Computed example of a mutant assay.
Amino acid sequence: MTDRKAQLAANLAHVEERISAACAATGRAREEVTLIVVTKTYPASDVRLLAELGVRHVAENKDQEAGPKAAESADLPVSWHFVGQLQTNKVRSVASYADVVQSVDRVKLVTALSTAAVRAERELDCLIQVALDAESGERGERGGVAPDGIEELAAKVAEAPGLRLGGLMTVAPLAGPYAGREQAAFERLMEFASSLRKAHPAANMVSAGMSADLEQAVAAGATHVRVGTAVLGVRPRLG
């Protein structure tokens, strides 16, 4: 076993312990929570090692990095999640490799994703990114649609060819009423998710929580957590 693989295995084991403990503390079954490893800034060789270690979901936030990495890893049994703010001029590329786009936050993006998915003869799961720091009609500083825009955007995704409405995603806000109150933020997201499922019963994914706050996300009821640093290490500084 290489040093890097041993390091990743140890980090994964620690993250697994954290998720399992968080599930046990709130009476949830461990299988209710899916780990997504965020591999941004790390090479495709790490994706390969992660796959060997049993990871089945990886995420990226920039197409220019994700595209080549996904191509290099095309033989691996992993699902690719796109979690970054997505410009429409990158949609055609992202739709060629992403299985899930977690950062849908505007109607224009839904239209572009639908067109690209149909062209690529693929079906993409889409999560609506919710900005819990956004006032009515505004986008949050980390992307996302204001809570009062969820229903309209969900309807657009649900009726768009080539797209499936998967559920909701958020990033813990740095500002606004939920700053520093991660669990309260994630509990609020769960309320929106419950409302969404009344109209769209299959939209049961709730993606929340990262390395620093995955316990709070699990306690709130998240179905997916996005962990990078805790698995791969502190990210290298890019030039």
Rank of each mutant, 00 (worst) to 15 (best):
S45H: 01
V47A: 10
L49E: 09
L49Y: 02
L50A: 06
L50Q: 04
L53F: 12
R56V: 10
H57P: 00
H57V: 00
V58N: 02
V58S: 02
A59G: 15
E60C: 09
D63Q: 08
D63E: 14
Q64R: 14
G67A: 15
G67D: 11
P68Y: 00
E72N: 11
S73V: 03
A74M: 07
A74G: 05
L76R: 08
L76S: 10
S79C: 12
S79I: 03
H81E: 13
V83C: 13
G84R: 11
Q85A: 14
T88A: 13
T88M: 07
K90S: 01
K90G: 01
K90N: 02
V91Q: 00
V91K: 00
V91W: 00
S93N: 08
S93R: 13
S96W: 03
A98E: 07
S103Q: 08
R106W: 07
R106P: 02
K108T: 09
L109K: 07
L109R: 09
A112I: 05
A112G: 05
A112P: 03
S114T: 00
T115E: 15
A117T: 07
V118H: 09
V118M: 07
V118A: 13
A120V: 01
A120K: 02
E121A: 13
R122I: 10
L124M: 14
I128T: 07
L132A: 05
E138S: 15
R142Y: 00
G143D: 03
G143H: 01
A146D: 13
P147H: 03
P147N: 05
